[in-house]
Amino acid sequence: MTPNQDPRTRYPRPPMPAQQQPAQPGLTGRMEPPPDHGEGSYTGHGRLAGLRALITGGDSGIGRAVAIAYGREGADVAISSLPEEVEDAEATRAEVERAGARCAWLPGDLREEAACVELVSRAVAELGGLDVLVLNAGVQRERDANAEIEREQILEVFTTNLVAPLLLFREAAPHLQPGASVIVTASIQSFNPSPDLLDYAMTKAALVAFTRALAVQQGERGVRVNAVAPGPIWTPLIPATGWDEKLVHFGEDTPLGRPGQPAELAGAYVYLASEDASYVSGAVVPVTGGKHL
């Protein structure tokens, strides 16, 4: 058995190299250092064998790590992303298929209701049903003080982070049978909001309410609903947020002294989708490097 590694030094520590992404949500290939999605480290044990999962934002970051882990645990997956994220999506699909699982890439802009409806319909058709819905896609941008945000910018964040999950669940609900699972990507921002992420933090707080209310409602149907609350995680979204000095020190304020890697969240999503979590619903699982929710 390999001994546990020191979590303080397992992955790169700040200062992080200065870098920028041209647009949200960002591309993996432009990141330095490259994030770890579990490509060389995650070992599956058949914990999700036979399940069918739809993962939004599954092309990169946390979504890619979840897709890889699910594939290696025996689940077939469908991933969504924006159409222009084809390079990252293809890389994710290749990793999932290398594990012997099926992976369908279903591009679309989830700010559009028609795209949400089509995504669920195509995922069900491609996979032959749906057992796990991972509502992970999101957007964040650095904001100026005094809520100096254009209305269209607010709507972009709210539509992506809040409206789309509601619409996706609405479309998925008829396909979710007893034993199915819904997993929401919340954030430490849900509980400890940063002023420069004002609108993003609002949406993440609302997603916790969504998770808890939906868990009560869906319990009667035998469908579990939970959330994962990541802390500072090294994904393409981070250099695309607009930070400069803050990026250099990203994750430095955690007790472990560094940002987390997407691979370090995969186990939480596997657990919540598995039978090991059969009595877990309405929970928010923190993966924060020691920062309190």
Rank of each mutant, 00 (worst) to 15 (best):
M1W: 10
M1C: 14
T2H: 14
P14S: 00
P25E: 06
T28M: 10
M31I: 03
E32Q: 14
P33H: 02
P35W: 00
P35Q: 04
G44P: 09
A49Q: 13
R64C: 13
I68D: 08
Y70N: 09
G71P: 05
R72F: 12
A78R: 00
S81K: 08
A94K: 01
E95W: 02
A99I: 08
A104F: 09
W105I: 15
G108R: 07
L110W: 03
L119H: 06
L119V: 11
S121V: 08
V124Q: 03
L127I: 10
L127G: 04
L127A: 07
L127W: 05
L130E: 04
L133T: 02
R141P: 05
E142K: 13
A147F: 08
E148C: 12
R151K: 13
Q153H: 11
I154M: 13
T160I: 09
N161T: 06
N161F: 06
L167F: 08
F169E: 09
F169M: 09
F169Y: 11
R170M: 15
R170W: 14
A172P: 12
A173H: 15
H175W: 10
L176A: 08
L176Q: 08
S181W: 03
V182Q: 07
I183F: 07
A186C: 04
S187A: 11
S187C: 05
I188S: 11
S190H: 03
S190T: 05
F191S: 12
P193A: 10
L198F: 15
D199R: 12
Y200M: 11
M202S: 14
A206E: 14
L207M: 15
L207S: 10
A209V: 09
R212P: 01
A215M: 06
Q218D: 06
E220N: 03
N226S: 15
A227N: 14
G231M: 14
G231P: 15
I233K: 00
W234R: 00
I238Q: 00
A240Y: 00
W243C: 00
T254P: 12
P255K: 06
G257W: 01
G257S: 04
P262H: 05
A263G: 07
G267E: 09
L272D: 07
E275N: 14
D276Q: 13
A277R: 09
S278L: 10
Y279P: 05
V284D: 15
V284S: 14
G289P: 01
H292W: 13
L293H: 09
